[in-house]
Design a binder for these strands. Sequence first.
RNA 1: CGGGCCGUAGUAUACCGGUAGUACGCAUGGUUUGGGACCAUGUAGACCGAGUUCGAUUCUCGGCGGCCCGACCA
Length: 417
Amino acid sequence: MRQSQLFTKTRKTAPKDEVAKNAQLLIRAGYIHKEMAGVYAYLPLGLRVVENIKRIVREEMNAIGGQELIMTALQRKELWETTDRWDDEKVDVWFKSALKSGGEVGFGWSHEEPITDMMKNFLSSYRDMPAYVYQFQTKLRNELRAKSGIMRGREFVMKDMYSYASSDEMHQKFYDATIEAYHRVFARAGLGDRTYTTFASGGAFTQFSHEFQTISEVGEDTIYVSKDKKLAVNKEVLTDEVLAQLNLSRDELEEVAAVEVGNIFSFGGMKSEQLGLYFKDETGASKPVVLGSYGIGITRLMGVVVEIFADDKGLVWPKELAPFAVHLVSVTSGNEQVTKEADRLYDQLREAGVEVLYDDRDTRAGEKFADSDLLGIPLRLVVSEKTMAEGAVEVVERATGSSKLVPESGILEFLQK
RNA sequence: CGGGCCGUAGUAUACCGGUAGUACGCAUGGUUUGGGACCAUGUAGACCGAGUUCGAUUCUCGGCGGCCCGACCA
C-alpha cells in the first residue's frame, strides 16, 4: 500500500474529548473514528488490526475444534423472557426496538439464548456432540457510561464461543482446552507475560468462572496474582476459604489492576433446561445438554495492546497485530534516484509477499519519521541518499528505536528470519 | 443513575454584551529537504431553542451532546 493512497491521515493533536490513551493515539494515527460516546468506526488501518486479532483467535479456536458461524444482531423477546433476562431490571444494557408489524426486538448484547435455542434443531442425540461453535459479533450494550476509549463501548466486537457436551467430562475437557487456547491467543497478541488465568465468581452453576486478566494500570478490575504459579484471584471472590481451596497463601499474592480480556464459564445443564435443549443418551434417557460459554473482547484487546505498548511517540504494535509488517520510508530530499530505489524496493517486497506500507509522499523526513512512529509498524526501512551511498537500507525497530544498516541485497533475507 | 466540568473553523485553542483572533490542516505560488521547515496569498467557525437586552457567540433557563469521579459491568 502506498501511503499517498491510504485513506486517513495522521494529526498532531489529540481530540479534546478523549482522555484514554488508546483512543487518543488511535484517532491521531487514523485507525479509528469516533461516531459517538463509546461507539467507534474502524478505518482501514484499524480494521487491519481487528482482522489480525480475529485471525489469531480464529486459528486458535479452529485448532481446538471450534466452528465459526454468525448469529443475528436482532433477537427475539420471547427467548429472553424464557430465561427471565428480557426485563430491564434484570439486564440493564438492553437496546430494544419495536417492530412495525407489532412486537419488540432486542439488539444482541450476548448470544447464549438464541444460539442455545437454535441448537434444538441440531442436537438431539449424544452422537451429535460435542459441538463447539463461535462467532465474531458486534455486541450492542446500552452502557450507562461509556469510557476508556475502545475498551468499554456501547458497540464492540466480541468473539463468543459456546460448547455443547453430552457429559460433564466432555465439557470439562473442552473447557480446559479453551484455557490453553486462550493463552496462546494472548501470547500471540503480545500479552502472554502479563495475562493471568483468574478465578472469578461462577454464578449459579459453578463456584468459579475463569477470567483472563491482563495486568495494566488502566484496568478496572483488581486482582491478586501469584506470578510463580501464573494464577490470579479476582478481588470479588478473595476469601481465606477460597485461597485454601486454591492452595494459595496471601504472602505470595500481589494486588494489581487488570483488564478482563477474556472470560469463560460453565452453565452446566441450567440454561439448556430453561430453553428446552435435551438429548437422548446411549440408554435413550433424556438429558439437558451441558453448556459452556467463552468470550474474548476483540476490540478491547486491541485497546489494551495500545495502552501497554504505546510510548510518547505513538503506537507500538506487536508483530502479529500490526497493520503492516514493514513501513518503507523514502527520504528523497528531492533526489529522484532515491524515489526510484524506494519504488524498486517496494515492488520487491510486495513480490516477496511482505505486507508493506510505503511512505511515498512528497514530504520532509521529519514529518515522515514522526508519522512512522505514530503508526507503530514494527519495522521501518529507510531509503535515502545516505543509505544508497552505503548500498544498504536502514532498518529501525519501532519498539526499541534501535537501528542498523542492512545491505540492500540482503534485505529480504533479513526480513524473513 | 448521582455528582462535577465542558460545547467557538476539519483539528487544537483565545478574547469579547457591539458578529471572532492564533496555530495546525487544506488550496495556490516560491524557497527548502534525515526528526513535524519557511515566505506570500487564500479557505473555513460560535450545538439547538427560549428569555433578558437597542444589540447575545458572550448573561439566564431548558434541551441535546461530550469528558471525568462514583455506582453498574455473565
